[in-house]
Simulated assay, not measured.
Amino acid sequence: MATEKYRTKVDGCLYYTYIFFAISVLIFLSLPLLAILPISFSSDSFLSYPLAGYSLRWYKEVLTTPNWLIPLQNSIIVGVASTLVATVLGTLAALGLNMANFKGKSLVTALMISPMAVPMIISALGLYFFFAELNLSATFTAMIVAHTILGTPFVLITVNATLQGFNFDLMRAGASLGASPIKVLFRIVLPLILPGVVSGALFAFAISFDEVVVAVFIAGPEQRTLPMQMFAGLRENITPAIIAVAMLLTLFSLILLSVLEFLRRRSEKLMPVRH
């Protein structure tokens, strides 16, 4: 009895120690953001401390002027389109790799996730020459295809992790009751792995929305995205508007992470146990 109480006490101490270190690391990583956050509310036209005054002018500029709204619109168009395609391809690839056994399966998997391992500058150069040969440079088609290639591995890995706990006997049960493969997919498999699919889609969208290196190589003036606009601002005219955009993107990332955590917990509750 005493030993059990001692273990409970030790476990409680370890739990609070882990919480303390986690919060400490979070604060450490957030310090740079906290340091520049006040500048986004500056009334001055330059990045400076101490602040001359406080104003929302830079948030208003970001949310109302074409210089920022058009790149934001382009980022959303490319991000949504590439996410839809990447989600379909990544989900189907994950299902195929988990349901089939064949020689070279590991090699195929490695090739599918290789865009994550290849340095971004190498991918950007390869895509640039590829689209130049097809006369597709400086088009939305090239941007969507490129971001689809970059986002698909994240969907594949996320859905593949979800399928590790999936009970494939449910598919056999559906087939034995007369359901077609398509009906089994949409009525049994997808509802159960949907949190993983949505999580992968959010990762793909975040990758597309934040990507700048490939966009610099293959995008034209009409396809300029929000990260490209920020990058241009750093080179040409540094204003607190860039900090305001960074704060909005940080808030957007926090929302995405919250949704991902909610979906992860929901997936754990819904997923049948594999025997």
Rank of each mutant, 00 (worst) to 15 (best):
V25T: 09
L26C: 03
L31C: 09
P32N: 10
A35M: 05
L37P: 11
P38F: 05
F46E: 09
L47Q: 08
S55P: 01
W58A: 02
V62W: 10
T64F: 02
I70C: 05
Q73Y: 12
N74R: 13
S75A: 11
V80G: 03
S82I: 00
V85P: 03
T87A: 05
L92D: 03
N98L: 02
M99T: 11
M99R: 13
K103N: 05
V108E: 06
I122Q: 09
F129D: 07
L134H: 03
N135A: 10
L136M: 15
S137D: 11
H147A: 03
T148Y: 06
T148N: 09
T148R: 07
T152Q: 12
P153C: 05
L163F: 03
M171F: 02
A175Q: 12
G178V: 08
V184A: 10
R187F: 06
V212C: 05
V213H: 09
V214D: 11
P221F: 13
E222Y: 13
Q229P: 03
M230I: 15
A244S: 09
L248C: 07
S253K: 08
S258F: 11
S258P: 03
S258G: 15
F262C: 04
L263M: 14
R264L: 14
E268D: 12
K269Y: 07
M271P: 01
P272F: 04
